[in-house]
Design a protein around this nucleic acid. Sequence first.
DNA 1: TATGAATGAGACTTCATTCAT
DNA 2: AATGAATGAAGTCTCATTCAT
Lengths: 179, 179, 179, 179
Amino acid sequence: MSQSTRERLINSAIKIFSRKGYFNTKISDIVKDAGLAQGTFYIYFKSKKDIFAEIVNFVVSEIECTIKKFERKEGSPSEIIKEFAREIFDILYRFKDIAYIFFFQVICMEEEFREINIKTSQKIKKFYQEKLKDELKAEILIGYGKRLVEFDILVEDKEKDVVVDKFLSAVDLIAGEKK
Amino acid sequence: MSQSTRERLINSAIKIFSRKGYFNTKISDIVKDAGLAQGTFYIYFKSKKDIFAEIVNFVVSEIECTIKKFERKEGSPSEIIKEFAREIFDILYRFKDIAYIFFFQVICMEEEFREINIKTSQKIKKFYQEKLKDELKAEILIGYGKRLVEFDILVEDKEKDVVVDKFLSAVDLIAGEKK
Amino acid sequence: MSQSTRERLINSAIKIFSRKGYFNTKISDIVKDAGLAQGTFYIYFKSKKDIFAEIVNFVVSEIECTIKKFERKEGSPSEIIKEFAREIFDILYRFKDIAYIFFFQVICMEEEFREINIKTSQKIKKFYQEKLKDELKAEILIGYGKRLVEFDILVEDKEKDVVVDKFLSAVDLIAGEKK
Amino acid sequence: MSQSTRERLINSAIKIFSRKGYFNTKISDIVKDAGLAQGTFYIYFKSKKDIFAEIVNFVVSEIECTIKKFERKEGSPSEIIKEFAREIFDILYRFKDIAYIFFFQVICMEEEFREINIKTSQKIKKFYQEKLKDELKAEILIGYGKRLVEFDILVEDKEKDVVVDKFLSAVDLIAGEKK
DNA sequence: TATGAATGAGACTTCATTCAT
DNA sequence: AATGAATGAAGTCTCATTCAT
């Protein structure tokens, strides 16, 4: 079997959540897309919230892993940040639909979920700050990164290379070691 | 009468939308808060979406007015941007609950609404760009501004002066004319 | 209006519960019988359990009132018991359908409900015992009373006079003061 | 194999039915308790109702056998009734869980099942009546017997000896040949 | 026989909206 | 204008039963 029932449900859920939004998505949409019966959903997930949480946690853990990996790295701060950004954008492009959910859906839900979004962004900020030793610069980078994701990637659907280049230029502008 | 029925409904709607989110808000919540009967709502608004649109359009028009006002102004770009920012933050602080809806609710709704958010942010970007003659810098400022609103103001609830100062510093860092 | 919506729902619920049993009764049966819309039910009651509890509490309070009334009475024990029985049977005949629910439905539900049935029967036993000064006799009377209700009244649908006479004979046989 | 699959299912069903009631018992509860798969149930039983009927019929046939055995016996009526009662209580104690189902579950189900309970109790009544030549006394004994089962045994969980003694005293009181 | 994933009918419940007063 | 009871469509969830392995 190419894909387990569980995976089919998750993939369909990601697809529908990112197209119609959490609240406009019905379980029936998900199972229809997955070609399964209504009841099958409840064998694998307790509720709509449950499958949503699973999806959200997936992005979060991907991002957190990347942060951890780069935290230990030594070297030129702006080089590390650039490298880090490349990987983060890589993840986001690979899981565009999930990223969509993370940036546009999580934000308008209950406290519980919104917090996940906030905490993750705070972790990235902390990472930038430790590298740059400058809070303002860290925050500006975070803001610009989020802008690129929310607008250039998820709305405008721009090429990865273009977006990454823009971010790298911003790093140079903001964090660039003056020669 | 100090407040018309219509205004009472709008104020209650703003309050509830910003606390519970569009989808979690019931008409019954709004009318209960306004101390009115269920049916009264439909004398003034066609639907839940209708009152939501009215609220969203309110912030948008306030922001657009401000943009128009500053577009014509002549002078040092970074000074104009700073002045502009002061006024925009002023509006956002005055209508915090509406800002909350604009930044956290509109974004996860149908195309129709999300577009309003996007267009507004594009208008501000255009304004920055015309002043700074630099797209990258304009985008970075937009990103940082949004970050301040979404995090410092709406999540952390920081003082206006503190937030404005941070933004002004960012303007100096990014757009600052080198003397 | 001859009957409030609430009353119509209760009356229909009593009717259906007593014919089909608690678990076989659907909210849709109740509202159909009452000639109302599905949603109307939930304006007045939280759930099926809720309306059931209301009905059960009604019989219980009627019976408890009668016990209280007779507890204080002075005189020949068997005469008081006979008088008491007449009134209890009166109530049960007047609210036959509710009695049906109380004797045949409550018994097979969760602890919470079954206990109500048990407690009520214990209160009657205590009443008999205080009058007769004999636990065995009190228990026998309780047993016979319950048998009459469950079988002669609710299954066989016998006339009130016949049933009451049978119970009074039993009182004479068991509790009769020997002359 | 110590216990056939069929027996395991029946034993689990008895256990669960008597704890949670017919309607609150899921097939999944039964098979889980029996350590079997969902589908296995349907190899042995047509439906939930089917296994329930089998269980109910078991008690009924045990009781009917006992009645038949004692019908033919000659001797002092009250002695025969006492002996009979001892055996019946013996059965009920041996199969307490099934008795529970018979007294508390069967009663609130469809006609079809309730009748089984009624008929059985009528058979016992007929037996008493033939021995005592007195309908009232027979009915009183039936009522008290049922009370002992439903309350002393199944609710209060009293010792067999205590319960049997109470019943024997009642026989003396009601049916006792005056010396 | 035994399995257990999948099914889908059917029940519950919510809530935006209508409408007679 | 205001009311608030009533509506019913729409969605969630459960679980007895089937069936391919």
